[in-house]
Simulated scan of single mutants.
Amino acid sequence: MGEKFFLYDDTVETQTRFVSFMGDNNRFDLAIVKSDRYYGKSLVLDIQGNRFAIIGSDDLDEPGYLEHAYQLNEEEAEELRSFLYQVV
């Protein structure tokens, strides 16, 4: 096995919020990671659904973004979107 070629290998300080809430249609168990990476956007991990996305407020305005990233229907995505507007 040859030597590994790293594109980057950084350690950064993060702020991580773990939150769980029940919407009308779905339960959300999230880890929201903020750091100086990703141009001010947050890494939002859906722990139960095993999915994640890098999200900023501009992404929340993008039609179909949350539906695609988290495999949600429109109602579920709207519940998640309304919460994320408050935290990203």
Score class of each variant (00 low, 15 high):
Thr16Ala: 05
Thr14Trp: 01
Phe52Cys: 10
Thr14Phe: 04
Glu62Gln: 13
Asp46Ile: 11
Ile47Trp: 00
Leu60Met: 11
Tyr70Gly: 04
Ser57His: 08
Ser57Leu: 10
Met22Arg: 09
Glu79Ala: 07
Phe28His: 03
Val19Trp: 01
Phe83Ser: 07
Ser57Asn: 12
Thr14Asp: 00
Arg17Pro: 00
Glu79Ser: 08
Tyr38Arg: 09
Phe28Pro: 07
Thr14Arg: 09
Phe5Lys: 06
Phe21Gln: 02
Leu30Gln: 03
Asn26Thr: 12
Phe83Met: 13
Ile47Ser: 00
Ser42Cys: 14
Pro63Gly: 09
Tyr70Gln: 08
Tyr85Gln: 13
Arg37Gln: 15
Ile32Thr: 11
Leu80Pro: 04
Leu45Ala: 07
Thr11Met: 08
Ser35Leu: 13
Asn73Pro: 03
Gly2Tyr: 04
Glu67Leu: 02
Leu60Asn: 11
Glu13Tyr: 04
Gly40Tyr: 15
Val88Ser: 11
Val44Asp: 09
Asp36Gly: 14
Gln71Trp: 05
Gly23Cys: 06
Ser20Asn: 01
Lys34Thr: 14
Val12Tyr: 00
Gly64Asp: 01
Ala53Leu: 05
Ala53Gln: 06
Asp58Asn: 02
Asn50Cys: 03
Ala53Ser: 12
Leu43Trp: 14
Glu78Thr: 15
Tyr65Ala: 06
Ile32Pro: 11
Tyr85Pro: 05
Tyr39Leu: 13
Gly2Cys: 00
Glu13Asp: 08
Gly40Ser: 14
Tyr85Ala: 06
Glu76Tyr: 06
Glu3Pro: 02
Arg27Phe: 07
Gln15Gly: 00
Pro63Ile: 10
Phe18Leu: 04
Gln48Lys: 13
Ser20Cys: 01
Leu43Pro: 04
Leu43Arg: 13
Glu74Cys: 08
Leu45Lys: 07
Phe5Gly: 00
Met1Trp: 00
Phe6Val: 02
Asp36Trp: 11
Ala69Gly: 01
Gln71Cys: 12
Asp61Lys: 10
Leu72Arg: 02
Glu78Ile: 11
Met22Ser: 08
Tyr8Lys: 02
Glu62Tyr: 10
Ala53Asn: 04
Ile32Arg: 10
Phe6Glu: 04
Gln86Leu: 11
His68Ile: 00
Asn73Asp: 15
Phe52Arg: 08
Lys4Pro: 07
Gln86Ala: 03
Phe52Lys: 12
Thr11Val: 13
Arg17Thr: 12
Ser35Tyr: 08
Ile55His: 11
Glu3Thr: 13
Glu78Met: 14
Phe52Asp: 10
Val87Gly: 07
Gly23Leu: 06
Gly40Pro: 15
Leu7Asn: 08
Tyr70Phe: 15
Leu80Thr: 03
Tyr85His: 15
Phe83Trp: 09
Asp59Tyr: 05
Arg27Ile: 10
Glu75Val: 02
Asp36Ser: 15
Asn26Trp: 12
Asp29Thr: 14
Val44Ala: 07
Asp46Cys: 12
Gly56Thr: 08
Arg51Lys: 13
Thr16Glu: 12
Asn26Cys: 11
Glu3Trp: 08
Val19Gln: 04
Ser20Met: 03
Ala31Gln: 14
Gln86Lys: 13
Arg81Glu: 05
Glu67Phe: 04
Pro63Lys: 09
Glu62Arg: 14
Ser35Glu: 12
Ala77Asn: 06
Phe6Arg: 02
Ile55Glu: 08
Thr11Lys: 07
Lys4Gly: 00
Tyr39Thr: 07
Glu62His: 10
Ala77Lys: 02
